[in-house]
Amino acid sequence: MSAVTATIAEGEMDAALAKPTLRDEGARLGFRLTLPAQILVLFISAFPLLMQLYISVTDWSPLSGAGWWSAWEMWNSFANYTDLAADTRFWSALERTAIVMLVCVPAEFLLGLALATLFADDFPGKRIFYSILLMPMMVVPAVAGYMFFMLFQSGGPVNDILSRIIGTPVTIAWLSDPTLALIAVMIADIWQWTPLMFLILLAGLVGVPEDQMKAATLLGANAWQRFTTIVLPKMKTIIIIALAIRVIENFKIFDTLYIMTGGGPGVATETISVYIYKVTTQDLIWGYVAAIALAILIVLSIVAVYAMKRMAKVREVAA
């Protein structure tokens, strides 16, 4: 009896779903539901990009007195782009951004992975330790920057700890030394974002099937062999995602760094975002800034398409 009812219900449902009116209703509703997001995306992409492209071939600046639409009067025949190629401050900022990334992302990855392996199985206190270890990534980055600004003062706690270890008073002026300032900034970034690596890698580590690990143990594989032959291959896509996220975010590094050093001393910690910020707000040559921004956007778009394909593949595997 119940089986029969179910069959009828299913038949009805198929009919209902197949009814052209309903399907059209779905298509129309889908269009309407996505419309606000489409408008917002268009609002922030199409028009701004065209405007950016337009301004980037002129000498326009907000101080020039004329509105941005009349920037064509200041047409400078792509001088901004040729200037950019010869702008040593831009290239050294880019290089510095790369250095920060090449130090911070691997450090965060290795520390995060090490922590994640410690948390792979249950032990007393796991939950509370886990929650505390995640805290840095939830601290407002500007506030984290201020924390480390205080820590690295010459009379601050970092030097205090060092002097207790060494036994003689240490008064290193961390943030006024070009090399040490860069190191301090990188320490702050590693402090704040290792938890993100830890969180994502642990999620991946937990997904590694236990029975395979047990089988490998029975076959005589030691911990390191199990790790390299079972765990790492299983976690490959997760590792790629985690690294991609940190590479993208680290490239934008601004808040903590700017609060700690303002890009200084001199230009010693001036990364690409800080450089653009300074040119925007101090030099006010917005035509030039537009050219820099567009150059970066084009490079990043190529990266985005690649990353997106990768993500789609991961989702297929997961599904």
């Binding site: 028009f47 934008k252 601004f254 910020y277 917005w286």
Partner: peptide, 8 residues
């Protein structure tokens, strides 16, 4: 980076 779209 937000910095790269902030001019417009």
């Amino acid at each position: 980076p937000p910095m790269a779209v902030m001019i417009p």
